[in-house]
Amino acid sequence: MAEGHPLSATLQLASFVGEFADALDFLFHERESVSGQTEIGGSELFHLTGNHLALSAASVGLAALIAVPLGLVLGHYGKGEFAAINASNVGRAIPTLVLLAVFVAYLGIGFVPIMLSLALLALPPILTNTYVGTRQVERDSVDAARGMGMTDAQLISRVELPLALPIIFAGVRVAGINVVATATIAPLGSVDSLGTPIIAANVYGRDGRLGAAIAVTVLTLALSAGLAALQRAVTPRGLKLAPTRSRRHRLLTPLRRRAEATP
């Protein structure tokens, strides 16, 4: 068929649409696997999505459990600024595939090594944001709190943590999105996720591959929107009322914070 022929373009479009239609069919209806032994697609996606989210939640949870207290303490005492700030830069320089591969090669396959590698991926943005969030609390509020007789622990829990919460949560959001995106390649370590149809293409075929890609995209974007809403919810009311800078800045600020963390 000649280049640029209208028929050729139409056919290409038809095959393009067809591929997506087949992929969507994979998502909504069970079918036999390529090798013909098992049921794939359709309701199996619930299992894969559940596993994907459980793995991601465990990883981000572990990372937050370490990074938030560490960031708060470092930020409170103003120690370790260089490390806390550069954690994100270093984290960004290590490709997610490499991180995961190092854990698989050196610790082995299975849930724990994969979860640890994803937790390590989630750690830097949460640590950096917690540190920055704690440091950006108005020095006057901190001075007043001390002057009124708050102990270090009270100062952290009653003043610094609540005021840093929106920024901490921005870090958790970035980490969460990264981890959910990266959990797509978790099957490389023999842990099932929505990436299973992508990695095990010999079982799931082209439709499974594209269908899983669609599912992962929808999941990530929905999660991103959900976490953004949650971030607004954890922002103390008194902070929302504070005079904001221009509309422009409001639009740009979350992006900027995001840019500080590992994608």
Binding site: L163, P236, R237, G238, L239
Partner: peptide
């Protein structure tokens, strides 16, 4: 103090 240091939250 001068800057008051009220807790905004």
């Amino acid at each position: 103090i001068q800057q008051i240091g009220l807790f905004p939250h």
